[in-house]
Design a protein around this nucleic acid. Sequence first.
DNA 1: CGAGTCGTTGAACGGAATCAATCGTCGTGG
DNA 2: CCACGACGATTGATTCCGTTCAACGACTCG
Lengths: 182, 182
Amino acid sequence: MRKLAAGATLFSADTPSAGVYTVVKGRVRLERITERGKEAVLFVAQPGAPFAEASIFSDVYHCSAVAVTNVSVNFYPKQKLLAEFRDNPVFTLAYARMLGHQLMLARTRLERANMNNAGERIRHFLMLETGPDGYSLERPGALKELAAELSLTPEALYRTLTQMTKAGEIERTTSALHLIGR
Amino acid sequence: MRKLAAGATLFSADTPSAGVYTVVKGRVRLERITERGKEAVLFVAQPGAPFAEASIFSDVYHCSAVAVTNVSVNFYPKQKLLAEFRDNPVFTLAYARMLGHQLMLARTRLERANMNNAGERIRHFLMLETGPDGYSLERPGALKELAAELSLTPEALYRTLTQMTKAGEIERTTSALHLIGR
DNA sequence: CGAGTCGTTGAACGGAATCAATCGTCGTGG
DNA sequence: CCACGACGATTGATTCCGTTCAACGACTCG
């Protein structure tokens, strides 16, 4: 477990890769600097997400990681992981399964991001990110967080939610969202 | 090795997964159909790219695959892959490496999709999806394809490209796009 | 109690989608 | 060979919707 202040660099592109991380708290920005000196954001890791997972297979990091906020991360040293890969095929398969799962998650998010309509995105989110019991979502964080996840402004989210509530598509309590029917 | 005509469906979402594919020739579009009957492109597999990689760990496909052009694909039956995983740890590791690479690609696309501005998306695409030689892009398909990849309407893409050309940000030839400086 | 922040609503703005028309090219069939 | 149709590329006009700026009430926390 490591803690870093906002703005700190975890690792830089083209430096030897030391291991793999997961975010515990805060956000980490993965970026690449082009030869022309311009930075391109590859990905912003949210809590729970692993990052630099693929660096385990590379000698150097292919991008840089910068703490956006104060962050806590778990660090898994490369040597230990590689040793585990050598000795434990089951672990290797589990790692591959994890990568496959992350890939599916990323593609689901990608699908949602490609919707250019707030209501559709919210519905998509509720249908997929909620328990199979009902289409309900206990939201631990603020609605603002949800808005960021959906890549909407809070205002757009609020408006669309009230609109959907009026239309009877969802129900709202103080702590949860519930998708109705279908 | 299998060959399919343009428009043919390789597999549909929620049908039992039979195996994994790679594109040899042509392009395959991975998509999901939303409730409204609208299709969302998850990504377009170019020659050399694998797809349905994660379905190996799943009972059913989570998206549909449609041939954009006439295509040739390699098919790897699920049973054989799973047997190989059991017997050959090196192969398992190589598979994990491939998944990690695909994950990186997906996250890059996700980052791009979250940009709500056509010019930014195009620039991001050109900065990352082009060879390191120059920021140029040979485009095998039509601009329409690029528009779909960027989740823009063809019109928006055309307009923004001419706008960027006028501003001197890019150069266009009949077969390529070239990002200029910085 | 005051400061800060979330949630909410209003108004104006901007940019992409949509609808529509034209031009050019390519392939197909008469 | 040429007419025709199909489709990509392009441009124009309009609409729609999310963003932005702004204001206010509710709540928590020091």
